[in-house]
Nucleic acid binder design. Structure first.
Lengths: 339, 339
DNA sequence: CTGAAAGCGCTTACAG
DNA sequence: CTGAAAGCGCTTACAG
């Protein structure tokens, strides 16, 4: 209000140097005599001066802001990823501008426009896709785009995922080894690459084991939908003896539904999830699941983003981080299965 | 890269008008003839032009960016709040720049400096506190600060919380009505206002009921600490018959610990939480808890922030939103308790 | 090493 | 209504 914002000119006046000198003192790598540095620093300190990031961004063309489009914040996988992402980026001098996405491509496109108006240095899309039109636009503007936990082959965008197809296979193999006969799949949203890939791998391995899925339903990555599916499965004449669920949060809903019906997960029916969110290891669920190594995924995304920003000529990369089966008690453990 | 970013000058050239005219077309409330508007819009469309928000911010002094300092993202309360906050602000044309906070006042102060360098229009601190020095600095710079889910009386900052003291009282009264005799409290972090207030209200009501707490421990808002506390409580000669826990996430850890010891929450020992995060209503926990009305808290915070930005003379306000007891099955329900 | 000056992309009085 | 011009707070060649 009163003192308002302090500018480099005011600092210069107090320090008895030119405004350029002040700027140099705050520009890493610029040259200034020890004496200048000292006087400027002390004047800046006194006035509480910090360079205006926005003004710097205007002239340098670098805002040091990364736009993040995120959805599904109620799924523990994302807050955990967001936190690490923010920390990693903060460490490199970047910050995250948040956009919560409506889940349609349309909604995301609208948000992307906003994002670009903020002159962000890069855009990370967590679990959402965009139109190829927008992808081109970003490319034209020289703004790197990295997809996180979503693939989109054709668009020439960088994408960091885990090995979803292999994960789906792993799930099936584990269930097969456990000698389950009636294996159902409440799949992840089939409009998403993760949902499709996990299902594809799962069916592939089932097929190899000469087993037809007992049931195959799109759970839409929605707890309520998953619970309803589970209800149906349990109400049928023949029940499944195992259910592979497209992500952990849906699996929790499935387990809750089973217990409400007096059925014990892991004893009566095996349940397998996908993600390994922190909650999965809590006593109440103790869910056997395929882990998505969120930390490595985030680090890879950051790394990809940063090299893309610093070396604009780098071609986009699609990287898959290895998933991993985490054995707990929600699914029968095959005899002799390596602990 | 190639076409790079489009500027108003280019649009002006294509539309055959001055650069100022372009600016006016994109400035709500500015005057331009229908003909100008039409030509500019079409040229802008063709070029994919969007006004540079940063340049606009420089001249207007309004960045339309709100800095958010957040911690505890693993606690479901915060992602849920974050999502709603982002949506509400987005609707008003603002966006959130995220800062993940180290939990000390020092760490937060460092982050605040960064925040102010970004020329944010306002700062929301979720569950963290700052030094009075920084509070003054922000005030001097004319940047409104709103505390979310944390109070800090002396600093003259706006603060939105729920009625924590009354909530603590409610918890005790419910337990008292349920005729529990050995009531323990694993408290929220005593370094935080929420932890202190809940505990104070709780002890107050207990005292009124002429009951001495069976045990009183600082759970630090940490699941592991809470689990260890629970372990101790269960291992003692005399066990509590009820535990009021400082937040839901710690309560989940307590319930897990009890079950691992073969003790049934709600039957053998009553457990009460605080927050009512979505997870609390899931079958696995079905936790009786004091609800913090997160949506109303967020809306109030947004409202407070916005009026503070638009009318800088508005005095800071401390608002408490009413909490509410949500009765589920984790604690014995007193006879005749109003459903 | 240092200062004067141009320029980043806008908005906003100021004339017309 | 509309254009020319100043200015927001910086960085960065350019001379010295």
């Amino acid at each position: 209000m009163e003192r308002a914002k302090v500018t480099s000119a005011e600092v210069a006046a107090l320090a008895g140097v030119s405004q350029s000198a002040v700027s140099r003192v705050f520009t890493p790598g610029a040259s200034a005599s020890a004496r200048t540095v000292e006087r400027v620093r002390s004047a800046a300190e006194q006035l509480g001066y910090r360079p205006n990031v926005l003004a710097r961004a205007m002239v340098s063309g670098k805002s040091r802001i990364i736009g993040l489009v995120v959805a599904y914040l109620d799924n523990q996988f994302y807050p955990v990823a967001l936190e690490r992402l923010s920390n990693a980026l903060q460490e490199k001098g970047y910050h995250i501008l948040i956009f919560t996405a409506p889940n349609s491509t349309d909604g995301v496109d609208k948000v992307m426009h906003d994002l670009m108006a903020y002159q962000v240095d890069g855009i990370i899309l967590a679990s959402v896709s965009i139109s190829s039109d927008l992808a081109d636009r970003a490319k034209d503007a020289g703004i790197p785009v990295v997809l996180f936990n979503r693939g989109q082959d054709d668009m020439g965008l960088s994408a960091i995922t885990s090995t979803n197809r292999a994960g789906g296979r792993l799930a099936a193999e584990f269930l097969l080894a456990g000698e389950h006969k009636r294996i159902a799949h409440i799949a992840g949203w089939q409009g998403s690459s993760t949902g499709r890939d996990r299902q594809a791998g799962f069916l592939e391995a089932l097929d190899k084991g000469r087993i037809t899925p007992h049931a195959l339903i799109d759970g839409m990555y929605d707890r309520d939908v998953a619970a309803a599916c589970a209800q149906d499965l349990l109400g049928a004449k023949t029940r499944p003896d195992a259910i592979f669920v497209g992500n952990d949060h849906m699996a929790f809903a499935v387990m809750d539904t089973m217990r409400a019906a007096g059925i014990s997960p892991g004893e009566d029916i095996s349940v397998l999830g996908y993600d390994d969110v922190p909650l999965s290891s809590w006593g109440a669920y103790d869910l056997t699941t395929i882990r998505q190594p969120v930390n490595r995924m985030v680090d890879t995304a950051v790394d990809t983003m940063l090299t893309q920003i610093e070396q604009p000529e780098t071609p986009p990369r699609q990287i898959e981080i290895d998933g991993q089966l985490i054995v707990r008690s929600s699914a029968r453990i095959p005899e002799g299965w390596p602990q």
